[in-house]
């Protein structure tokens, strides 16, 4: 027993000493690596910038060991660039094999490797990556799907719009990630999104209407107004919010009618939207809602009414029938008076 314990103690002492040695060596290695990286980046920055200015020869004769540093710099710049500079970046990564390298890793057995490649491909700006990334939206790993979505947004690929919407509707992509990718695609995403307003799947309609609200303009309001009569409460609520974002006054009547929706969160969304649209006529029905509805729609209605017609809210707060939400809205009006 004593011998066993002694050997265990010796073993533990050796493990401890080994850990300490590894820590010390790693510190030294990291410090050295960091110094080298900073020096190399400083040296190669002019060549990378020359490439972005349309001079591919600037990096053509660099030794192979410098290429990863240039690639790192260009991938970092790609976050903030568009147009011809991104095309130069794409050509660099395509001609130097970066794109092929990462595409091959998209089929790796390791999820983290696939996710890393999916992420890097977005910064390589190459349109060749679009289809493989769309396939990656079906990956078994959530992080790979999220990285692919983010890269599809970076590549501003309109053909990715429908897969992104359906991936979200199928709960394969979180709302924030899919939404931000679609917003990054920008105006080219609108035609497919408009078509998806009539999709059979409620999840797809809900997401499409939300995105149309963020990307579209007042011309989209008739199609969005139609969704206020959707069978899904989530779609109706998102349609109301979208109308608020579009700021279309022709949506006021439909939104005011939505204040009578049977679902409280739809009524709350309609109240928020009416405040954003800015039609003072809506203040009266909003005040009615604020006085009598459940907590969330009443609160939203009180605040919306205060934005549209502060004087009406102050008057309403003076009456005995005014509920707490109107009083709160009135107090905020007084508080924020100049």
């Amino acid at each position: 027993m004593v011998a066993a314990l002694t050997w265990l103690a010796v073993g533990l002492a050796m493990i401890g000493a080994f850990c300490v040695a590894v820590l010390a060596l790693r510190r030294l290695a990291l410090a050295r690596g960091e110094r080298k990286r900073v020096a190399a980046e400083g040296r190669l920055k002019p060549q990378a910038l020359a490439l972005l200015d349309g001079d591919p020869a600037a990096v053509g004769d660099l030794p192979p060991e410098d290429m990863p540093v240039v690639a790192g710099l260009l991938a970092r710049y790609a976050h903030h660039l568009s147009g011809s500079e991104r095309r130069e970046i794409a050509i660099f990564f395509e001609t130097h094999g970066g794109v092929d390298h990462e595409l091959s890793h998209l089929r790796s057995r390791r999820a983290w490797r696939r996710a890393t490649s999916a992420f890097l491909l977005g910064d390589m700006a190459s349109p060749r990556a679009v289809q493989p990334l769309i396939h990656a939206l079906d990956d078994a790993d959530a992080a790979v799907r999220a990285a692919a979505a983010r890269s599809l947004g970076r590549l501003a690929a309109p053909e990715a719009v429908e897969p992104l919407v359906y991936a979200h509707a199928a709960e394969k992509l979180p709302r924030t990630v899919a939404g931000q990718a679609l917003l990054a695609v920008g105006a080219p995403a609108l035609p497919p999104l408009r078509a998806l307003l009539e999709a059979a799947e409620p999840g797809a309609r809900e997401f499409a209407v939300e995105l149309v609200g963020l990307l579209g303009d007042a011309g989209d309001s008739p199609a969005v107004v139609r969704r206020l009569a959707d069978s899904s409460a989530e779609v109706r609520a998102k349609a109301a919010r979208a109308l608020g974002r579009l700021g279309a006054r022709d949506g006021t009547a439909a939104l005011t009618a939505t204040l009578r929706d049977r679902i409280p969160f739809v009524r709350a969304a309609a109240a928020h939207a009416l405040a954003a649209v800015g039609d003072r006529e809506a203040a009266v029905p909003l005040l009615r809602l604020a006085a009598h509805d459940h907590f969330d729609p009443a609160r939203a209605a009180g605040h919306a009414a205060a934005r549209l017609d502060p004087a009406a809210v102050l008057r309403a707060a003076g009456s005995d029938a005014a509920g707490g939400h109107i009083e709160e809205a009135a107090d905020l009006v007084v508080l924020r008076l100049p």
Binding site: A146, T176, G179
Partner: peptide, 10 residues
Amino acid sequence: PTAETLASPL
């Protein structure tokens, strides 16, 4: 997707 989350209105 930290940067995307930070920028997203969603």
